[in-house]
Design a protein around this nucleic acid. Structure first.
Lengths: 231, 231
DNA sequence: GGTCCTATATATAAATA
DNA sequence: TTATTTATATATAGGAC
């Protein structure tokens, strides 16, 4: 965020990567403190300088005891318990969303657009982006850009639900041509900014699912978009 | 950080506190992800909506397994071990700093200023800020503003060292007049931004320590400023 | 409550010392 | 290296719905 915008990916240059770590680490520390202070909530941040380091380069809260109190609430219990609670949380969320008609309408609009995306994706089968005119691509990208956040949220939701509900991750076959198209997409910045890495994430998409049942099916307990596989 | 700058303290209004939590929580999540991605380091963030909540409102990394991996490296070991490592870390830091002559010079300059602060503090005994002319106050505040960061770092260092080295926190008596003066200081923004809350932090300061021995005493293994009590 | 919209406050990538 | 200094990119507080 400064003189230039930078790609959301590992910084190649060693020196500037370290410099960035130092700067951003400080920034984060400040921000966690602010969050915790302003909103009066427990929060904890830990940053390591390298995957193999034993000692964090940054910890918040700086009080050892307080940091542990927050941390251990999260990780000081069996994984099973945590998952169970997460499931409950999801159920609660779902319930709340069922009650919110306005939000449902909005999600519906998003779903329609997601379906359009899905359709466009289908058109790309075996052809890559060359199969589309410049205008089509532009429009598609514009649409995707706008929806990037929504898609990210949705995926997070689905990921959590699935992690809890499904024993083995549900793998979805993907058409080779679509993968080629995705390769193109990956070069777009918004794609990286959705948080996907090396194909992770998109493997959750189903491109052969043309089910468009229900435009307000959320109330029925599921997401209405056919773009996402059922949970 | 927007239409108005806000005080770094618990937001009184319930609605806006919650709104802020939501916004900043999202911001933090994004930033931890960026930090971890750009710098290629493990990092973890946990935020609870309330002190008594069992479930975090935000966790990063979103992958359960990965979050735990980072977290447990920090909290999945006996406190003793961690403290020992911290102590080592401090020793290392001290060693490095001993080697850095330039940095020592700089710290020295800071120390002199800190001593000046201490002196000014002494002048305030029993009188509050009223005892000083507007110019004096302005100058003092200016000095403090510049040094705020340095002071914060120093205090962090001391805090850590002491947490490790001293069984019972070393309490420093504080002159009542000085406390009054501090009350004034606390109203200044830079003060809150140093991370102090409700007198915490300043209790570590010694106001009756006029020891100014050594302007480059750091090489001898200690901080040269008389403003801070010995570790 | 949420969402969307700015005007500002902050964070920070590069350049520089 | 480690600061400091910009110029920009981001985050967000306060409103209006």
């Amino acid at each position: 965020m400064a003189r230039n915008k930078i790609k959301l990916a590992r910084i190649a240059n060693d020196a500037s990567r370290r410099a960035t770590l130092k700067k951003r680490k400080n920034g984060m520390m400040k921000k966690v403190r602010e969050l915790s202070t302003l909103c009066d909530v427990p929060a904890c941040l830990v940053v390591y300088a390298a995957p193999t380091d034993r000692d964090p380069v940054a910890v918040w809260p700086e009080n050892r005891a307080e940091a542990e109190r927050v941390m251990e609430r999260f990780c000081g219990q069996p994984a099973m318990e945590r998952d169970r609670r997460m499931l409950n949380q999801e159920a609660f969320l779902r319930q709340r969303m069922t009650k919110s008609k306005e939000q449902i309408k909005k999600l519906d609009r998003e779903n329609r657009q997601l379906e359009l995306m899905n359709y466009s994706l289908g058109c790309l089968k075996g052809e890559g982006l060359d199969g589309l005119g410049m205008e089509d691509v532009t429009e598609l990208l514009g649409l995707l850009e706008v929806k990037a956040k929504a898609v990210g949220d949705r995926i997070e939701y689905l990921q959590r639900s699935r992690d809890v509900a499904v024993a083995a991750p549900q793998t979805v076959r993907m058409n080779v041509g679509v993968q080629a198209a995705i390769e193109e997409w990956r070069r777009q910045e918004w794609f990286m900014e959705m948080g996907f890495q090396n194909g992770e994430g998109l493997s959750r998409f189903s491109n052969n699912n043309s089910n468009t049942t229900g435009t307000s099916g959320l109330g029925g307990g599921g997401w209405s978009s056919g773009f996402f596989p059922p949970v």
